[in-house]
Write a protein that binds this DNA or RNA. Sequence first.
DNA 1: GACCTGCTGCGGATTG
Length: 763
Amino acid sequence: MNDAPADPFGQISGNGASTSFDLLHEKARRWIWQQGWTELRDIQERSIPILLEGQRDLIIAAGTASGKTEAAFLPIVSRLATDERKPGAGFEAIYISPLRALINDQFGRMETLCEEVETPVWKWHGDVASSVKERARKRPQGILLTTPESLEAILVRRGNEAKRLFAALSYMVIDEMHAFMDADRGRQLQSLLNRIEIAAGHPVVRVGLSATLADMRTSAAFLRPLNPDGVEILESQMGSQPLKLQVRGYIQPRLKQRDANSDKCEVTESTADIEIATHLFDTLRGHRSLIFAGSRRNVELYTARLCGLCETSGVPEEFFAHHGSLSREHREEAERRLKEDNRPGSIIATTTLELGIDVGHIDAVSQIGPGHTVSGMRQRLGRSGRRAGQSSVMRVYTTEIAIDERIHLIDAMRPRTVQTIAMLNLMLRRWNEPPQIGCLHLSTLIQQILALIAQHGGLTVKQGWNRLIESRVFPEIDQALYIDVLRRMKHPEVQLIEQAPDGTLLPGEEGERVINDRGFYAVFMTPDEFKVITDRGRNLGTLPIDSPVMPEQLIIFAGRRWRVIELDNQRREILVTRAYGGVPPKFGGEGLPPADEVVAEMRRVYESIAIPRFLDRIALECLTEARETFDHLGLRHAGLHQHEDELLLFPWVGNRAQLALVLALASHGVTANSEGIAVTVQAKDGSKLIAALKTLAERPAPDAEVLARLVPDMKRAKYDAYLGDELLARCYASEHIDAARVPIIAADLISRLPTGVTTIFET
DNA sequence: GACCTGCTGCGGATTG
């Protein structure tokens, strides 16, 4: 791989099979030779003719180290070098990345190639000096590496220059495309691509790069909404490195209650954490690895432990923390430490290092807990074993609580272990979470209407319709809803827009303020944190409010179970009281379950007798216990189980359907709580529950908007506050509540009532 | 659910 061919301009591969190489510009071929490459990668071979032709959109779906960027940019710079170009006539290609750090990495890799072909390359994001942007703006040419937010800023602040900047544009490359899809940011990006093409005055070839796309049809529709069938798809045939996978189980002994009369404090450190840290230290010290710890708190905890172990062992520190609350300097220092010197070292991170920020070669990846998505898991796995002939190594650490007479049934079902197995099964089957369909994204629609008004100094209703709805950036929105949103924005209480006598939409008083806020260019919101206060006035800490919290609901906080008394939206406070007796489920009851497919796979794991090969001894024991509990509770046939003063329902559905069920029960006066795979109801409400389920099963599906109104604070996205109750409920319902399935779920639960239960509760 | 992502232009002080 590192042997340079004798003749730099001859055939690149020994057998002379590469025809794509010959198609490239002479200077691009020289660059390849200088890199010491002896052959082009599969996807590069295939992308070159397509992109050189410059007519078709393209998705390159290939593993993390498969050379996707070069697959896009070798033909692009070749084409630019061949074409006749007027200096300063406008940028010729744009590379769009979700992260500034990725732009900085790519800039370094791209510079030598672009120098060779005499094409300027510009970085443009929030950290780039305004003098550099000024120069790029005065003489736009070559390749622009930027973020959606920076593009938004360019269009909003320099709308009248857009034509000049983009008139010569031939290509738009979107890196890590999966990171945009299914998110507000993705809608904004789609709209930006459209607005840039309109400014350019001609269609521009779109190229999407990703390693974890769920489904090529939806991905093509994301890239080119008006012509998905015209998008060429390249999926890598290679790149499946040998895989070494292990799930390691750990048992957490129950901590003894602190004795109020004793002055001896119990050790509060968890043994499972210590064992995991010790194993990480023993296996990773001296290697180069990434450890995904799941939360910022865990990152800190494990970094401290691992550094402590380095100290007591008298070895140099080689473990570094990396998460969103740490300063950029701190994070970059950790990245540099690993990248620059190829010494041993590990970074403990949240999702901050999931995307391809360059930290050099990685031997192994560790993950603590199952994580939240299968595609995230795959993305993390892809960060190791990137060298030819090496395996990808991944260890997943799962913790379950020791079984004793006080264990909660949900814990006894070993949900973490089973979820991990289910997610790995799905990953091995090459499944990824599909983007959710039907979401209205009204907050982003509002932002884009304002952005278009700002860019053009005003907008007609028809122009807005053409650019946002007819363009299929917001295909879920019909004419009536579009008009409703505009009316709302114009409402005297809102004043985001006003209308000139000729009908042109202009910014209203509030609209001016919103557009001129420097945060306007980003469509996503940094979530508000709620203070959690007990009825005795104790401040427990803060809780990020991105899940619905209702009075009467149970939440787990600071290791205890609490009942919500009251929610104060003004003061951003949640008032709680200690919940009724019984031990809280330590790991199971963390709210809504994962996606439908993951829950369905979990059920199959419980029901099956198959033993995955990737389990260590304790993980295997946990799986055995999980299946024993499952059978002991009769869950193979029953969907309900009573345990002391609690009823546990098992609908076996994912988050949106389970939230619909919980809210539908609430609408019938039954307080239900999502505790992972189970829904819990107080036993005293048993007869009410059965009656409610029967009604729900018989009647047509409840209206999702009506259910949404039971959620006290439906605001999730940045400009939701402007929507008003009605639009907000529609929007929330479209994104979070799968009401259509409620009758089927209720009927299924009724049909799975354990024998005897109906008679007990039916009186 | 946990976590993550982004950002202009101008006024004023400081420095060479």
